[in-house]
Computed example of a mutant assay.
Amino acid sequence: MGGEVAVELKLLGVAAILGLVQLLWSAAAARRQQNLKWAAGPRDTPMPITGVAARLHRAFWNFAETFPFFAAGVLGCAAAGRLGGDLTVWGAGLYVAGRALYAPLYASGVPLARTLVWFVSMIGLVMLLVALVR
């Protein structure tokens, strides 16, 4: 019944875990600036965050913007029987590696390296999508 799971599907799972870790990391950093009473309430009055907490929040939402495209690419390639090629394996690997490095770099305030790592993840995403439509 069980065959080997394609590396791209495993990387999809790793990316989902990365997203969850980033969400929790961002929330924990924000709670250090926002009191728990405010966080547990209706949040009608905004309570802005700054510094590392704000950078982690932006990094998470940057992940959230790209992850659906990655998931669609991996699942589309799986449905089309296109997993296992160089474009899909390397593309998924570059995306996940880039996303894993992006949040810590952003939290640290490293501007150029963060942008280059983001670009690497986008190259991986494009490779995956090219494999789907070619």
Results as ranks from 00 to 15, higher is better:
residue 1 M to F: 09
residue 1 M to S: 13
residue 2 G to V: 07
residue 3 G to F: 06
residue 4 E to Q: 10
residue 4 E to G: 05
residue 6 A to E: 06
residue 7 V to K: 00
residue 7 V to E: 00
residue 8 E to S: 00
residue 9 L to R: 01
residue 10 K to D: 01
residue 11 L to G: 00
residue 11 L to V: 00
residue 11 L to W: 00
residue 11 L to C: 00
residue 12 L to Y: 00
residue 13 G to Q: 00
residue 13 G to C: 01
residue 14 V to Y: 05
residue 15 A to C: 07
residue 16 A to R: 01
residue 17 I to N: 03
residue 17 I to T: 14
residue 17 I to S: 10
residue 17 I to V: 15
residue 20 L to R: 03
residue 20 L to Y: 09
residue 20 L to N: 01
residue 21 V to P: 01
residue 21 V to H: 03
residue 25 W to V: 08
residue 26 S to P: 04
residue 28 A to S: 12
residue 28 A to L: 12
residue 31 R to A: 12
residue 31 R to T: 05
residue 32 R to S: 07
residue 32 R to F: 03
residue 34 Q to I: 14
residue 36 L to P: 06
residue 38 W to N: 09
residue 38 W to F: 12
residue 39 A to S: 14
residue 40 A to E: 10
residue 40 A to C: 09
residue 42 P to D: 15
residue 43 R to M: 15
residue 43 R to N: 13
residue 43 R to V: 09
residue 43 R to E: 14
residue 45 T to Y: 06
residue 46 P to R: 06
residue 47 M to Q: 15
residue 48 P to A: 15
residue 48 P to V: 13
residue 49 I to N: 07
residue 49 I to R: 07
residue 49 I to Y: 09
residue 50 T to L: 08
residue 50 T to R: 14
residue 50 T to E: 14
residue 50 T to C: 06
residue 53 A to C: 05
residue 53 A to T: 05
residue 53 A to D: 02
residue 55 R to S: 12
residue 57 H to L: 08
residue 58 R to P: 04
residue 59 A to T: 07
residue 60 F to C: 03
residue 60 F to K: 04
residue 62 N to G: 12
residue 62 N to E: 10
residue 63 F to S: 07
residue 63 F to D: 11
residue 64 A to I: 10
residue 65 E to M: 05
residue 67 F to S: 06
residue 68 P to T: 09
residue 68 P to Q: 12
residue 70 F to E: 05
residue 73 G to L: 08
residue 74 V to T: 09
residue 74 V to C: 08
residue 76 G to S: 07
residue 77 C to F: 04
residue 77 C to W: 02
residue 78 A to L: 10
residue 78 A to C: 08
residue 79 A to E: 07
residue 79 A to F: 03
residue 80 A to Y: 06
residue 81 G to Q: 06
residue 84 G to E: 11
residue 84 G to C: 11
residue 85 G to A: 06
residue 85 G to L: 07
residue 85 G to R: 01
residue 88 T to Q: 13
residue 90 W to H: 11
residue 90 W to I: 13
residue 90 W to R: 11
residue 91 G to I: 03
residue 92 A to Q: 00
residue 95 Y to G: 04
residue 96 V to L: 02
residue 96 V to N: 02
residue 97 A to H: 05
residue 99 R to Y: 10
residue 99 R to H: 11
residue 101 L to P: 07
residue 101 L to E: 05
residue 102 Y to E: 02
residue 104 P to K: 10
residue 105 L to F: 13
residue 106 Y to L: 08
residue 108 S to T: 04
residue 108 S to W: 14
residue 109 G to L: 11
residue 110 V to I: 15
residue 110 V to Q: 12
residue 111 P to L: 13
residue 112 L to W: 13
residue 113 A to V: 15
residue 114 R to L: 10
residue 115 T to S: 15
residue 116 L to P: 01
residue 117 V to Y: 07
residue 117 V to E: 05
residue 119 F to Q: 05
residue 120 V to N: 03
residue 120 V to M: 10
residue 120 V to T: 09
residue 121 S to Y: 09
residue 121 S to C: 10
residue 122 M to A: 13
residue 122 M to L: 15
residue 122 M to Y: 08
residue 123 I to A: 13
residue 123 I to M: 08
residue 123 I to L: 15
residue 124 G to F: 01
residue 125 L to I: 03
residue 125 L to A: 02
residue 126 V to S: 06
residue 128 L to S: 01
residue 129 L to S: 01
residue 131 A to Y: 02
residue 132 L to C: 04
residue 133 V to I: 14
